[in-house]
Each structure stands twice: as structure tokens, then as C-alpha cells.
Simulated assay, not measured.
Amino acid sequence: MSGKNLELLLLLLLLHALPLDGSMWAAQLDLLPGATYAPTLYGFGDRVEDWAAEALKLPRGNQVIVVGCSVGGSCALEVAALAPERVAGLVLIGTKAARRSDPAFHATAVKALREQGLESAWREWWEPAFSTAASPAIIARARRILMRQPLEDVVLGVEAFHTRQSRDDVLSTFSGPVHMVTGADDVLPGLATSSKQADMAPNGCLHVIPECGHYVPMERPEALNSTIRQLIDQIAT
């Protein structure tokens, strides 16, 4: 089968970060037209494992490239754990495969969200995750995405994030290509962790995006799109 025909069989599954939704991937939707899925995950359940199981039902095919940002990357690893034979490759953006349990912060975060609301959480947790070089228009768009989410959906997302499994085991055994992406200015999880994870994956590589924070798909979409196209070409040849 030619590379072009194989590319037509590829599907792209895009899994969003907290506290956003599937619309954060607006700049990536045309990478595989008609074969790209960008669901909003909160309605799929209260665990990352539930999100992965439901998200996996969307693409009807066995050559799925899964791209996840932050907790969406954790969900991508769960997809690979559930159906490694269907996952052709992974792009993990600002993702930490290992989870360190922190029940006190978990409880504090949920309490703060419910008592102080989304605006306060945005200013304290999520706005600072953007690079200082990020366009104010992009940051404002991200805030608008957050503010249209029901509060309890964001709480559910925080709960899912704090109760996710450690998935070093998936990262270290997945045989397909893994493209680890980090903004140079991202500290969540940061360059050192992303580099270690790229080395951990049997077929891993690291992409560092300059002047970029945690939300690479929105901050530097052209750089991320180049990486995803590289993976598409890698699989299609």
C-alpha cells in the first residue's frame, strides 16, 4: 500500500488540557480533514480511564495517532494502555506520565474551585502556565474557553487529574513512535521531565518549542502542527 493511501486510513484523536475543551485544537483540525476527532472529555466520566475508553470509541479505525496536552496526554497514555494495537503513534504535550499522590493539594484545589470560582482559579493556576511571550489574544481566548465550562465539569476534570494512574509502564513499553513536546518556558512538567520521558520511550524523541509555555497547541500551533505532520509522514511511509 502506498504512503498516500495509508495516510487516508490514519485517524487523529486530540485530547485537551485542563481547564479547556476540544475547541483548543482549532488550529489542528485540518491536519487530517474528515478524520480528526477533538472531543470534550468532561462528559465521559470522572476518571481519566473513563475518558480514554469513551474517546477510543470515536475513531473507527486501527491506525490512530493520539495527541494529548497535559491531562489529555495522560488520557492518551490510557488509550495506548487500552488498545496498543490501534495506536499508531503518540504526541504527548506537557505531559507527566508518573503521578505523585498529593491528597492535600487535591482537596484544596477542589475546595478553592467551588468556593472561589473559575476566575480565581484561572488567575492562580492556569493563566501563569502560558509563556510571557504568548499573545494576549491567545490567552484571552483560552480564558473564554474556560469561562464557558460548567464549574462542576472543571471540578470533575481536576478530580480526574488528581486520581489518574502513573503510566510510566505504558510509556516505557509502547513500541510505536512517541513525540514528547514541551514549551521551553513550561514548568508543568518542565524540560527535564519531558527529556527523561522521551528517553524512556523505546521509540521516543523530544521537541522543545521556544518562547512557549504549557499550552503549545494554542501558543505555537505552527510548531506543533509540524511535529504532527512529521509523525503522519513517519507512519505513512
Rank of each mutant, 00 (worst) to 15 (best):
18 L>F: 06
87 V>S: 08
102 D>W: 12
54 E>P: 00
38 A>D: 04
111 K>H: 09
95 T>N: 05
50 D>L: 10
115 E>G: 07
95 T>Q: 02
33 P>R: 05
15 L>H: 05
40 T>C: 07
79 V>M: 14
62 N>K: 15
74 S>R: 15
31 L>P: 05
102 D>K: 10
23 S>K: 14
51 W>M: 12
117 G>V: 03
27 A>R: 10
112 A>E: 10
70 S>M: 00
90 L>Q: 08
57 K>V: 04
99 R>E: 04
30 D>E: 15
83 A>E: 04
44 F>C: 08
108 T>I: 08
78 E>P: 00
67 V>T: 10
48 V>S: 14
113 L>E: 00
74 S>V: 15
77 L>E: 03
89 G>M: 12
14 L>Q: 03
13 L>V: 04
106 H>G: 04
22 G>D: 00
22 G>Q: 06
75 C>T: 15
45 G>R: 12
118 L>P: 01
17 A>Y: 02
24 M>V: 06
101 S>N: 11
51 W>F: 15
15 L>S: 03
72 G>T: 11
120 S>C: 11
80 A>T: 01
116 Q>F: 07
39 P>I: 01
61 G>T: 08
117 G>C: 11
18 L>Q: 02
38 A>R: 09
24 M>S: 05
113 L>D: 01
89 G>T: 10
61 G>Y: 05
78 E>A: 15
80 A>C: 09
120 S>W: 09
13 L>I: 01
10 L>G: 04
30 D>T: 13
118 L>T: 06
67 V>I: 13
92 L>P: 01
87 V>W: 07
23 S>T: 15
98 A>M: 12
87 V>K: 06
35 A>T: 05
26 A>Q: 12
119 E>G: 12
37 Y>L: 12
83 A>S: 12
77 L>H: 13
48 V>K: 13
35 A>R: 15
35 A>C: 01
113 L>N: 02
22 G>K: 02
55 A>Y: 03
107 A>Y: 05
111 K>N: 02
109 A>C: 05
79 V>R: 13
78 E>N: 13
99 R>N: 03
20 L>W: 07
39 P>V: 05
91 V>C: 14
30 D>N: 15
25 W>L: 08
91 V>G: 10
19 P>Y: 01
81 A>L: 13
78 E>W: 00
102 D>E: 14
77 L>C: 15
